[in-house]
Design a protein around this nucleic acid. Structure first.
Length: 110
DNA sequence: AACTTGACGTACA
DNA sequence: TTGTACGCCAAGT
């Protein structure tokens, strides 16, 4: 892995999120060894506009809530993208989030 | 140069 | 159990 920095790592992991799966900021931060710095992950995602390969819509907070949907174009684009992958989203809340949760530390650490 | 805000999460009261 | 406070680090103002 070519880890250039914390932000780059976030982009790496985020781009590895499988189709129809989601993860949380804290999970990524924790995987990077920066547990507690979940905000940095969110900030990195904010700059994801420079990284088209980073599906930021698959990254939500630990509640499975689409907190950042407002940052996407329009108002429900993020939800539309998730539903397009077969993820059920109601009121910005991912349904069955526990089953759809993709833990990088658990999946990539194998 | 300093203060405030921010796609979060955990700890404490 | 719910609510409030604080910590992380960077960028914007």
């Amino acid at each position: 892995m070519a880890e250039s920095g914390f932000f780059d790592k976030v982009y790496q992991v985020a781009s590895l999120i499988p189709y129809g799966r989601v993860t949380s900021y804290g999970a990524i931060a924790k995987y990077l060894g920066a547990a507690g710095s979940a905000r940095m992950v969110g900030w990195a995602m904010n700059a994801s506009g420079k990284h088209p390969d980073v599906p930021a819509h698959r990254v939500v907070n630990r509640k499975g809530l689409l907190t950042g949907k407002h940052h996407f174009s329009g108002t429900n684009l993020m939800q539309q993208l998730l539903e397009n992958e077969g993820i059920e989203v109601i009121e910005n809340q991912i349904q069955n989030f526990d089953s759809l949760f993709w833990d990088p530390m658990k999946e990539l650490s194998e």
